[in-house]
Design a protein around this nucleic acid. Sequence first.
RNA 1: GGACCCGUAGCUCAGCUAGGACAGAGCGGAGGCCUUCGGAGCCUUAGGUCGCGGGUUCGAGUCCCGCCGGGUCCGCCA
Length: 620
Amino acid sequence: MNVIREAKREMARVISQAINVEEEKVFNNIEYPSKEGLGDLSLPLPSVTRNLNIDVSGRGKYVKSFRRDGIFINVELDEVSVFNDVFSSLSEDYGLEKVDKPKRIVVEHTSANPIHPLHIGHLRNAILGDTLVRLLRARGHLVNSRFYVNDSGRQVAILIYGLSKLNYPEPPAGVKKDEWLGLIYAMTNVILEIRQITQELKNASESEYKEKISKRDELVAVAQGLRERNEEYFDVLSDGIMKEEDPEKVILDIIERYERGDERTKQIVRKYVNYALEGFMESLGKLGISFDVFDYESDLLWNGDVRKVLEETMDSRARVNYKGTWALDLENFIDEAVKEELRIPKGLELPPLVLMRSDGTTLYTLRDVAYTFKKFSDFKADVVINVIAEQQAVPQMQLRATLYLLGYPEHAKNLLHYSYGMVSLQGMRMSGRLGRYISFDEVYEKVKEVVEAKVREKKGNLEELDEIVNSAIRYAIVSVSANKPVTFNVNKITNLEENSGPYLQYTYARAYNILAKVTDHLDVSNIDPLELVGEKRKILIMIARFPEVFAKAADDMSPEVLTVFLRQFSDLFNAWYDKERVLQEKDEKKRITRIFLVKGVEAVLRNGLKSLGIKPLTKM
RNA sequence: GGACCCGUAGCUCAGCUAGGACAGAGCGGAGGCCUUCGGAGCCUUAGGUCGCGGGUUCGAGUCCCGCCGGGUCCGCCA
C-alpha cells in the first residue's frame, strides 16, 4: 500500500477538475513543501496553469483541507486516515514496492585485474555495484551479478613471467594470496621498466636523457621499497630478468600460448589467476559482496566468441583501413540522431574501433563486444549495467556504437554505463603497476580497529563488530553521488556520529528494543488521534512516503536518495525519542498510538538498510 | 585543441535528471542536557556573493551560452 500515492491521486483529481487541467499533469507536479506549517503536499500553480486566480476547496479520504498560499495550493492530509491505512497493512516487506514488469538485469562490477589485491578504487566500484544489485532485486527485478576476469592481457603475462623466474612458487601459508601476487607483479613490472629505460638511455638524445634519468631514479626508489618487502624474491627476479636476452619476447610468447589455449600455460595461468580471485572473494566477503558468475576473458577466445564477432565486424560496411590495420569507422556511420539515442555527446568525434593488431591478435574493446553479447544472451537480459570508472566513458560509447552498427540497436540502447568518479589518494594517483595503493584489506582493518575501540569504550556488543564496520564503509561510499571525484580519507569513514551507517543501526536498535518490550495488544482502532501531532505526525508522513523514496532510489539507481531519507528519518525519530516516552506512557490509547509509530520506524529502517546491504542491528 | 565529470558553510557532502516558498545535513567552533524505553543520542548558537558573467522565466543552486579553477579521456594498453 502506497498511501502517499493515493493521497496525491486524490489531490490531483480534485484540483484537475477545479482548474480543468489533466490529472496526470497535476499529479506529476505535486511536491513536498520546503518548510513547516505549509501542509503536507503542495502544488505550485504556475507549473500547471496560467490562471492563478483560483481556489480549491473540499476534502476527501486523505485530503483534509486545501489552502491557497501565494502561487501554491497546499494540502493538509488527514493523519488518521493515513495512520489507519499505513498500519492496517504494515507487512514485513513494507515499502519495498515491486515493479509491475520485472526486468532481467545483468550488473557487471568490480572486475579487477587478477594481479594485485583490490584497492580503494575497487572498493567504490564493488560497493556501488553490489548496492545496485540489492536495490534492483528489492525492487523486484531479476538480477545477475557478474565479474569479468581479465586474464588474457599483458598484465597477467607479466605476472606469470615473474612467477616463472621464481620457479612457480606456492603462496606461503597465512599470507593473503592476492597480496602475495601483487608484490611479485609489482616487482616484476618495475624491474622490467628499469631494464627498458636503461636500454633506451643508450640511444637517447641529449634532451631526452635528463628526463629518462630522473624517471629511472624514481623507478629505482620504488624498486628499493619493493625489495624491502621480500629481498629473496626481488633478487631472484632482478637477476633473472636482467640476464634475459629479450624479456619482451618471452612475455609475448606467454600471451600467445595462453590465447591459443596451450594446456600447460592454461594450467599455470588459471591456477594463479584463481589465487587472486580467492583473495578478492575473501576481501569482498567481509562486506557481504559476492557474484553469481565469473566470466573469464580467455574463455571468449577459446570458444570462438571473439572470432565470430571479429568476422561480423570484418563484414561491416563501416570497416576501414586504419593506420595499416582494420577498424570500424564509428564516426561516419553513426549519425547525430543515433548518437543521441546511444547517449553519445554530439560534439564528440568517436574514435574508430580498432579490430585487431597488425599481427592479427585481438584487442580488449573487441573482446568486450563479444562479452557484451554473452551477458545479454546468457541471462536473456533486458538490460546490462556496467559499473566502470568514468575514464572508460569513451570505450563504453564505442561499445554501444559498435553494437548498433552490427545490427543490435536494442543491445546498444540497453547497455548502461554506470559511471563513477576517480578515487585519489591525497593528491597521489594509485598505481598497481608500481605497487602503490591502499588496499581494500588495509582500509577494512583500519576501520575495524577504530570501530572496535569505540565499541569497547561504550562497553558494547562485539559480536556484530563486522556488521558495524560494513555499515560504516558502505554508508561513506554510498552517500556520495557516484559521479563525484573523491579523495580517499579514512577519518571520514571512521566517524561514526550522526551522518553515518552506525548511526542508522543505532537508531534501529532503539526502535527495536522498544518493540521487544511491548505487551499491549495492538489494534489500529484503539488509538488516540490527538497524538498525531508534532514530530509524531511528521514521522507518520515519512513512513507513508518511504515506498515512494525507495522506488525512486531503485529506479534512478541513486542509493544516496535512500541514504539521505533514512538519515533524516532517523534524526526525526531521535528528536522525538528524547522528548517523550513510549512504554512508560500511562494512557493506553496514547501508548498504542506511539507503539504503532515505532513499528513503522522499525520497518522503514529495517527494509531501507537491508536494501543498501546494511544489517539492522538489534543490539550494538 | 576536442569531449566528459566536478566546483554549494572552515572541512566532507545532500539538493540540479522533470525550475517553485527564507539554500540543508554532518564534522569542526561556542554553550547546554544523564532521577531518561540504549548518550553512537538530544537541545541552543555562530558560519553561505550556491566558482564568475550574461541569458531564458512570473520565479534559477537547478535550464541555456560564455568564461575561470580541479580532474579524466582522446593507444595496434586494459
